[in-house]
Structure formats: C-alpha cells, structure tokens
Design a protein around this nucleic acid. Sequence first.
DNA 1: CAGCATCCCAGCTGATACTG
DNA 2: CAGTATCAGCTGGGATGCTG
Lengths: 136, 136
Amino acid sequence: MNASAKAAAVAPLLHTTPGFETDGRDTCPIREVLDRVGDTWSILVIINLQEQPVRFNALKRSIEGISQRMLTVTLRSLERDGLVTRTVRPTTPPEVEYGLTELGQSIAVPIAALGDWAAANRDQMRCARGTFDAGS
Amino acid sequence: MNASAKAAAVAPLLHTTPGFETDGRDTCPIREVLDRVGDTWSILVIINLQEQPVRFNALKRSIEGISQRMLTVTLRSLERDGLVTRTVRPTTPPEVEYGLTELGQSIAVPIAALGDWAAANRDQMRCARGTFDAGS
DNA sequence: CAGCATCCCAGCTGATACTG
DNA sequence: CAGTATCAGCTGGGATGCTG
C-alpha cells in the first residue's frame, strides 16, 4: 500500500467527503466519538467495566478521584450512547450493576490498546517533557 | 486466560499499586496520557500527521473547525510531549513542517484503531442515543 | 446504596487584532 | 506563512446537601 492509497483510506476519518454529510453539519467520525467518550472519565469507566459488571460504589472506589456526581453523569452518558447497561435489583438497599454492552465491549478493545500504549510509554513522554522544558 | 488473570493484567492501568507512586500523587498511565492527548484537538492532529509531515496552514485546512490559536497550542503541547517534530525552513515566506516522532507514530497506531472503530460504529451510537432519548 | 439538585469556579476555547 | 497577544464566554467538573 503506497502513501496516497493509505491517505485515501484514512481520509474518511477526518472529515466527511463533500456531499456525504449525514446530518446537516459535517462531522468526522473520530470527532463524533471523541465528543462522547473523550471526556475526563468515560474511558476510565469503560476500562473498569471491561472484566465484569460492577456496582456503583465499587466502581467509584476503583476510579481514583472521581466524584459521585461525575460517575453518575458519565454512566448516564455511556448508557445513552449504548455502551453501558444499567441493571437495578430491587433489593434493600438497592443494588445497581453497570456493565458493557456489546458495543461497549467492542470499543473497549481499541481503548485497552491505548491503555497498553500508555503503560508502555508514559515514562518516555515524561522524559520528553523534561527535555523540552529544559531546552526552552 | 481466566478472568482474574486478565484483571491482574489490566490492574496496573487503573491506579498505581500502593508504594509505587512515581511522583507524589498516584496517577494511572491512561489518565496521564489522556491528560496530554485527551483534549479537543490532539488526536485529530496526530491522525492528520500520520501519513507525512504537513505544513501549518495545510494542517489547519485539513482539520475542520480548528482555530489558528488552538492549532498552535496543540502542536506546542504535542511537541513538548515528544510526539511531534517541528521543522523550520528559513525561506521567505517561512515554511514550518510538522511531523510525528517515533513516539508519535507509535501512539498513532492505537489512535487509528479507535478511528476505525469510530467510522464503523458511529451510526450505532447515534441510533442508541435516539432510542434512549425516546424511552425517557 | 445509589442517586439528584444546586451553586460555583477554573480553564479551555474561540474571536479578534497584530507581527516578523 | 506562521505565528503571538489579549479578551471574553461557556461548560466541565468539584463541593455540598438532600432523598427513596
């Protein structure tokens, strides 16, 4: 695959081809998805739900620094986008379990890949920052 | 690989093990990386630089909706983190080319994977949102 | 336990104007 | 062409208090 062919393959991600706008304003897919899971907490929530369904407070404990409010807001948003399921068991006290939908499981794959990259390269980024700051 | 083994493999991504904090506050790798490329524009810039180095205004034109200011800010940030290179050719008018470093190329891989997911599943997310909004 | 409502602020971001 | 500088606004997100 040569460079121009690769460019053509990537092009659709960047902005819709003129004439192919799907909803009035032209939006590129990656932008649209980032607008939904690109906030501070969504990706962390998805990673934490990848293994098995988790209850609200357990989730809260496993995500360092998240407030109750933001966990609620984030879960609602992910549920709205069809990435997360919410299951209430009418016990007392109530138990609410959150899990990933199939769609959620599927996005968890590339997200986990990004997580692997993060774990492998965080030090290199820190180092680069130090070098840059020293040189300026 | 069973569930608990997978959980153990993912665990380091979530929060550092007690006693392993590297900089006072404990940070999980994915959080740290998202703090750097998780803003509105970084990922789009990286995708646009993946194929070949691009000059400032060409980049600006290819990223729908980005302002001159935010492109500058984003590029500086990525350069600082060692993901992007900046090459000035002292012509008149000046030409400044931006490209990905090796580190930048490596993060472009999982990012492109996320882009592919976005392209493949955006419609499903839109649909889910419609259903959710109708049901509430 | 699992939320919702309210208040409030920091900072990200866009708009605009100017420069080598 | 490729920036820098300044100003102003919006909204993401924290803090707090209350409910079924």
